[in-house]
Nucleic acid binder design. Structure first.
Lengths: 260, 260
DNA sequence: GAGTCCAGGAATTTCCAAAATCCAGGTTTA
DNA sequence: TAAACCTGGATTTTGGAAATTCCTGGACTC
């Protein structure tokens, strides 16, 4: 009998159990948005998206509407949907909120976690570190490492008793992913001198040792480093095509390319 | 030049600037949901809602979808939408999160607030206390006092610099309202011995005195009392028709009643 | 008698075309 | 010249009907 706990993402495998077209389109769009298939500021016209994803306007509209409620797209009046711009200020807003919420959730998770929760963390860490941090596969905008990374952070908080806390953390996680993956838009993938595996291991160790203070502090630092890395990518002029009046510069034609 | 700050609710008057039918339907449904026009657990069939609100299924579906993303309705697969059940556990989840987030936002608001922010708080408090806490008007499910109350709490946090924080607080506020207004479903409106105006005044005074610690603590206590009042209403058996297999007991027919 | 399977009916989801709205460009006017 | 005003085309939004899915009740089998 499993615990009635929602993970960061309910679907465990690739795209299991998308009961409805709107749901499937929502997930595809979400992954493509966080994976920078569309540049910030560009318009997302119904016609092009509908034929790109091979769906009608109704499920597409529902998908966009849901994404707007999570601020992964911007909905303006009767003027359609746009990709939100990026800004360092907003990025730090998101990081600071994640620090506040995820620390709280981790402390709660440590207080409530049982043996099954512990082994889930260990398993997720194992899967994460045994896999190279390869770039995204060309067909899929969400790489295996991204998935494992998400699952590891989800496992840490898996025993948190507050569904609402996890709900908000999930939304912020996707936002954060969007900024984190800005780096991979760059040609050179020179990482900051950072040992992510080690950071994850330290968080895991403190969590399993049931030291909420320490674990929370390590998690907060981990998130801060993530923010710094994203901030570095933000200062680079290349990947941020600050939307001029008409942002249809090359990247818009990519919208029309059918996803096969 | 006004500050670029989103209030708890962007629309200031009754229902100003609902650019689209979907938007207007979303707001009407939201107010009716928090105002207990529909009992917890009942199904919300498209056909009845469509003719009750005099809209087509497309905007209705979008409205319900948005409400589902804020958990004011529950969407299940291809089985339509339901009114979420109530539980004391979830209510305390919401209260505890509000305490965490609103304290943070109030501290930030105090740090950033200017003179215009101060006078907005004073004005909102004045409007709130000069009006009797009358019950909802029969035609409208959101009373004047509710609106003023919402505006006062929004004014307190009006100078908070984090849009995301305010966004989540807004969602939780509607959830909280749903539980708070459970009391008014009861026949007797015997209030707990509680001086709400005084609580509000103390919070305001500490805020304007720029005492973030004290103001935050008072706000946390205020929210705790709100939770206790709702918990009292939850224990009463009457207003919580625990949904049997088919919850079409009288309250369902009220769904069909056109809102005029 | 209990469980499984199958149809009919009801509800939701989706498609598609019509209506409403917005935007760009050109024309007129002060 | 610049601002305001139309007008045509493109885009979004909406209404309603088709398609798909789900639920209920009854018959059939073990």
């Amino acid at each position: 009998m499993k615990r009635a706990i929602t993970r960061l993402e309910s679907e465990s495998p690739g795209d299991a159990a998308a009961k409805t077209i709107a749901e499937a389109t929502y997930r595809r769009l979400r992954d493509d948005l966080t994976g920078w298939r569309y540049a910030p500021g560009v318009k997302l016209p119904f016609k092009e998206l509908a034929e790109a994803y091979r769906v009608g306007v109704s499920p597409l509209r529902e998908a966009l509407s849901r994404l707007a409620s999570e601020r992964l797209v911007l909905a303006s009046g009767q003027r359609g949907f746009r990709v939100p711009p990026v800004s360092a200020d907003e990025m730090w807003e998101i990081i600071k909120l994640r620090q506040l919420l995820e620390r709280e959730a981790l402390v709660d998770s440590i207080a409530h976690g049982d043996a099954a929760w512990e082994s889930e963390i260990v398993a997720a860490f194992h899967r994460l570190t045994r896999q190279p941090a390869g770039a995204s596969a060309p067909g899929d905008s969400l790489s295996d490492w991204d998935r494992r990374h998400r699952d590891f952070h989800g496992a840490l908080l898996g025993a948190c008793s507050s569904q609402w806390l996890l709900h908000f953390i999930g939304i912020l996680y996707h936002q954060s992913e969007r900024y984190r993956r800005l780096r991979f838009q760059r040609a050179d993938k020179s990482a900051l001198p950072r040992d992510v595996d080690r950071e994850h291991r330290e968080i895991m160790d403190a969590t399993l040792a049931r030291k909420p203070r320490l674990a929370g502090e390590l998690l907060v630092r981990h998130l801060a480093r993530t923010g710094e890395a994203a901030a570095a990518a933000l200062t680079d002029p290349f990947p941020v095509p600050t939307p001029a009046k008409r942002p249809l510069n090359g990247s818009k034609t990519r919208v029309t390319r059918a996803k096969r």
